[in-house]
């Protein structure tokens, strides 16, 4: 049996499971309360910083998880507490994968396919009236991560985000 530990943190559950010596799998389970998201984000940032991600990568990965979990709470669960949102982090020597699960109202998968960071009508706009107030979350995730896939089946929704670890550069100078 794989070693496993679990910790309760202010309504959050945090479980680490050693999948193999080279792969770490950690589960976070939070209640669908927006106040829980920052704690989750900061925890994932710390885990990324223990891998070989740069400070800016850690910030960006935290941002994408915060966006994904906030979407689950705001849209899938209509901002209502009392539902579980789970994030499974899998860290391998090559990459990090973050699976965000909820059991709320599914998102139309086209929203992720069609999400953009900058809409064509905003391309040259410096006028705040020409800029969307919201709707940047999915575009940010697609821009920052190397992969983003959304699936909805059997009453559950899963958004999978993946980012490769930076390749180690070999300095040829003596």
């Amino acid at each position: 049996m794989l070693p496993c530990w679990e910790l309760n943190l202010k309504g959050s559950r945090f479980r680490e499971r050693m999948a193999t010596m080279d792969t770490r799998r950690i589960e976070f389970v939070i209640d669908s309360d927006i106040e829980n998201v920052s704690l989750l984000g900061m925890s994932i940032n710390k885990i990324c910083s223990s891998a070989s991600f740069s400070e800016i990568d850690c910030f960006n990965i935290e941002l994408c998880v915060v966006e994904a979990v906030t979407n689950s709470i705001k849209h899938a669960h209509h901002g209502e507490a009392g539902n579980e949102v789970k994030v499974v982090l899998t860290l391998t020597p090559k990459d990090i994968t973050l699976d965000v699960y909820d059991t709320g109202v599914p998102m139309d998968p086209k929203m992720l396919d069609e999400a953009r960071l900058i809409w064509p009508e905003e391309e040259d706009s410096a006028d705040p009236d020409g800029i969307a107030e919201g709707g940047r979350g999915l575009g940010i995730m697609k821009e920052i991560m190397d992969g983003a896939i959304y699936r909805s089946e059997k009453g559950g929704n899963r958004l999978t985000l993946k980012k490769a670890l930076p390749t180690t550069k070999i300095d040829s100078d003596p």
């Binding site: 920052s38 906030t70 705040p128 009236d129 979350g137």
Partner: peptide, 19 residues
């Protein structure tokens, strides 16, 4: 030390209101 799309949206909304 951290901002997300909701935070950015609140800035855009505020700018419109003040403008």
């Amino acid at each position: 030390d951290f901002i997300d799309s909701s935070g950015l949206g609140s800035l855009v909304s505020s700018l419109r209101s003040v403008n």
